[in-house]
Design a protein around this nucleic acid. Sequence first.
DNA 1: AAGAAAACGCTCAAAGTCGATCAGAACAGA
DNA 2: TCTGTTCTGATCGACTTTGAGCGTTTTCTT
Lengths: 261, 261
Amino acid sequence: MAEMLPQQRHRHILDELNKYGQVRVTALSHELGISEMTVRRDLNALATAGDLVKVHGGATRGPSATSSEPGFARKLGLAAPEKEALAHRAAGLIEAGMSVALNSGTTTYALAGQCTDIPDLTVITNSPRIAEVFYSADNASQTVILTGGIRTPSDALVGPLALAALAQLHVDICFMGVHGMTAEDGFTTPNMLEAQANRAFMASAAQHVVVADHSKWGITGLCQIAPLDAADVLVTGSALAPGAVEILEQSIDTVLLTPAP
Amino acid sequence: MAEMLPQQRHRHILDELNKYGQVRVTALSHELGISEMTVRRDLNALATAGDLVKVHGGATRGPSATSSEPGFARKLGLAAPEKEALAHRAAGLIEAGMSVALNSGTTTYALAGQCTDIPDLTVITNSPRIAEVFYSADNASQTVILTGGIRTPSDALVGPLALAALAQLHVDICFMGVHGMTAEDGFTTPNMLEAQANRAFMASAAQHVVVADHSKWGITGLCQIAPLDAADVLVTGSALAPGAVEILEQSIDTVLLTPAP
DNA sequence: AAGAAAACGCTCAAAGTCGATCAGAACAGA
DNA sequence: TCTGTTCTGATCGACTTTGAGCGTTTTCTT
C-alpha cells in the first residue's frame, strides 16, 4: 500500500471500523505498512476526538452503533474527556436565569448535558438532539426553544425558518461549537447553511462564546462563520498547538484553557 | 470467526443472551474459539457490570431485562391496531411529490411511519418525534421541515415561533390528530397553545384531513381547534358509536371508515 | 446415598499489547 | 540551502490477556 497521509489513514481506520465494528492494532499496522506505534498514535487521536473507543488490542466503535442498547444518558457521559472538560468550563459562564443559545455540535451537546440543573434557564437551540437533552431532564424552571428549519446531516436546523426565528430572539450569551479555526479564516464550518444559521446566532446574542477543542486549530472549513475577533470568549484545551494561544489572544479578549486530561 | 477483541466478545455474548435467554460456557468457548477460562472471565466481568447473572454452566439474563430499549421502532409497531389502520387509510390520500403537514399526536406519529417511502414528499411538522421518524428513514428525496417553538408535554412545538413558521408555509394537505370531537364543540384539544398551532396548520393547508380513532367521539377538550365542518375529510374507525357517522357526514364531505379490527 | 461427570476458579507461565523515549526522515518556510 | 517542526519507527520495561494444570464444588446418574 502506497504512502498515506495521516488524514487518509484516519479515514481508512474509521472505514474499517464501520465495516467490521472493530480494528486491531497489529492488523492495521500490517495492512497500512506502518509501525504499530503510529497506529496507536492514530487511534489515540481518533479516541480523543471521540470517533472511536480504544480497547486492549485495538479499538471498537463508540457506544452509538452497537446492537445492544446504549441509552441516552450513558452516551452523554461517554463523550471525549476533553469535550467534557470544555463543556464544564463553559457551563461555568452560565448563571441562573440567563437566556442562552446553543448551536448544533458535539461540544455544545456535551455542554447541554451540564446545564440541565441550572434553574430558570431559557435555552435556544437549533439542534433537536440538544433540545432532547433538556426535555428529558424535565426541569420545570427551564424553557427550551427550538428554532425551526430543515435538518442538516449534523443535526442542525437551518434555512429561512431558522433565520427568521433567531432574528426575533435576543439572548444574553451564545455558545458556539465550530468545525475549524485559524488566524486568517476565523471560525469555519463545512456547511454553508449552518454557517448562515451560526451567524444569526451571533447576531442575536449580547456575548459570544466559542467552544472548540484543540484539534480545531488550523482547520479551515468551507465557509466562514465569523472572524476570530467576533468571539468574546474562547474555551479550548491547553493541548493547543504552542503559539496558538498568543495568536488567539490578539483577537479574543478572553481565552479560557482547560487543563490537559 | 476472526480474532475478536474482548469488547466484541462481550457484545456477542450479550447478543446471544438476548436471542436465547441463556448462554453456556462450553458453547461460547467453542463458538468463539477461546478457552473456557476466558469465557468465564468474560462472564464474570459482565456479571459485575450487572449485564447478566451467572449460573452453573453459563449465564442468564439479569432482572434488568436489557431488551427495554427497542424504544421507538417498537412503540410504533405496538401502537393500537386501530391507529395503524387509520394511519394506513390516511396515507392512501398522499401522493408522491405532495407537500404534507402533520401535527403532533400519536395517530399522526403512526401515519408518519407509513409515509417514509413516498418519494419527493415535503413534510412539515411541529413534532420532533415525527421529524425523527423521517430523519432516520433517510429518504433523500424527502424534505422535512420542523417548525420551531416551545415543546409541550405531548411533544408539540407551539408558540409564536411555530405560528410564524406556519404562516409562511402552504401545503397541499394537512393531517391532524385531535383529542376530542363532538357535534357542538367540533375538534378540541386540552392545550390552548396546541389548539392555536393546529389552527395555524389548517390555515396553511388547501385540504384538511382529521384523523381520529372512534374513542375520540363525544370528548370535549379545553379548547376548540375548529368546528366539524372545517374538515374536508375525516378518517376514523367503524367502531364509532351508532349514529355518529350520520352526524359527522352532515358537516364533513368525506368520512372514511376503516374496518373494525 | 455414593460415585461419576461436569463445571468452577485459583495460579502461573507464555504471549501479546502498551506507551515513554529517542533518533532519524520528511517537509515547509525563510 | 538551512533550520525548525512534524511525523515516524525501533527499543524496552511494564502491564494485560490468555490458556493449561489441578484441586474443589456442583450437578447428574445410578
